[in-house]
Computed example of a mutant assay.
Amino acid sequence: MITIRQAGEADFDLVAEFIRKLAEYEKLAHEVRFDDATLHRHLFGPRPAAEVLIGEVDGAPAGFALFFQTFSTFEGKPGIWLEDLFVEPNARGAGLGRALLSRLAALVIERGGARLEWNVLDWNELGKSFYRSIGAGHVDGWERWRMQDDALEALANGL
């Protein structure tokens, strides 16, 4: 049986473990730099920056979805950005990924939102195939850009 629940503070270690497992799967473990105290504050502190759903199969945690609110000026409505989705290898194919995304879609609607969006690594054909199977599509004409580390500091300091 699949259940989806909101993560609570007691789930912090589990969430951190899922993040590390996702990074390993994505071949990005070397980019995981969070310290526990900072991540904990941003997930479960007085002003959470993100929310987490835990997916369970037969009562055992087997995956998670980490997400946060976005806003579309064109739609004039909020949305949800799915930052991380991970399902343990032994639970894949059981419907847990679909159940997590279904709950996120319901949250978008419950919150009066317009969109559920996320990124997919260009090599992740398994993920792309799964997302297509649930009705998602690639957004043509857009590229993802990022600023971080030294460039972010320089811009913040007016350089």
Score class of each variant (00 low, 15 high):
4 I>V: 11
6 Q>E: 14
9 E>H: 13
10 A>M: 10
10 A>Q: 13
10 A>V: 11
11 D>Q: 07
13 D>K: 11
16 A>N: 06
17 E>C: 07
19 I>V: 14
19 I>T: 10
19 I>W: 00
22 L>W: 01
24 E>Y: 07
26 E>S: 03
30 H>P: 00
30 H>I: 00
31 E>Y: 05
35 D>C: 11
36 D>G: 15
40 H>F: 13
44 F>D: 01
47 R>Y: 10
47 R>T: 10
48 P>G: 06
52 V>A: 12
53 L>D: 05
53 L>R: 03
54 I>D: 06
54 I>R: 01
54 I>W: 04
55 G>P: 03
56 E>M: 05
56 E>T: 05
58 D>Q: 04
58 D>V: 01
59 G>V: 06
60 A>R: 13
61 P>Q: 01
66 L>V: 02
66 L>Q: 14
67 F>T: 01
67 F>R: 02
68 F>S: 02
69 Q>K: 10
69 Q>Y: 15
70 T>R: 10
74 F>K: 07
74 F>D: 12
75 E>A: 15
76 G>F: 05
77 K>M: 13
78 P>E: 03
80 I>Q: 07
80 I>F: 09
81 W>D: 12
81 W>Q: 08
82 L>Y: 05
84 D>G: 02
89 P>L: 00
90 N>H: 13
90 N>I: 01
91 A>L: 04
96 L>H: 03
96 L>N: 05
97 G>T: 04
102 S>T: 15
103 R>I: 02
108 V>F: 00
117 E>M: 11
120 V>M: 05
123 W>I: 04
124 N>H: 07
128 K>A: 12
128 K>L: 00
129 S>V: 02
135 G>V: 09
135 G>W: 06
139 V>Q: 13
143 E>K: 03
143 E>I: 13
145 W>S: 08
145 W>M: 15
146 R>W: 10
148 Q>Y: 15
148 Q>I: 00
151 A>T: 15
156 A>G: 15
156 A>H: 11
158 G>Q: 03
158 G>S: 04
159 L>N: 14
